[in-house]
């Protein structure tokens, strides 16, 4: 599934409740260059609404969302 997206950094955010996933991702995305992609793995169901909202506001792009039972994976491209 994710073969077509080249991931430059993986962030394990499992078990972290709100607001930690977006707090960590907003910091983590600064570690990659513009155009690079991070894969954020979370177990917070609220993230399904939160990540797109965060991406829209911060000007980054979610390329793909992968949900397998409790695990949600976001592929986020740094845009700004």
């Amino acid at each position: 599934m994710s073969e077509d997206i080249k991931v430059d950094k993986v962030m394990d955010l499992k078990g972290m409740p709100c607001p930690m996933p977006i707090v960590k991702v907003s910091k983590g995305i600064k570690d990659v260059e513009v155009g690079q992609v991070i894969e954020a793995i979370t177990t917070d169901p609220g993230a399904l609404a939160d990540f797109p909202a965060w991406a829209k506001t911060s000007g980054n792009e979610i390329l793909k969302t992968d949900q397998q039972e409790d695990l949600i994976k976001f592929y986020i491209e740094r845009k700004a």
Partner: peptide, 11 residues
């Protein structure tokens, strides 16, 4: 939580 969340969103 709102404050840190807002900071994460670039506010």
């Amino acid at each position: 939580i709102i404050a840190t969340g807002a900071a994460a969103m670039g506010m």
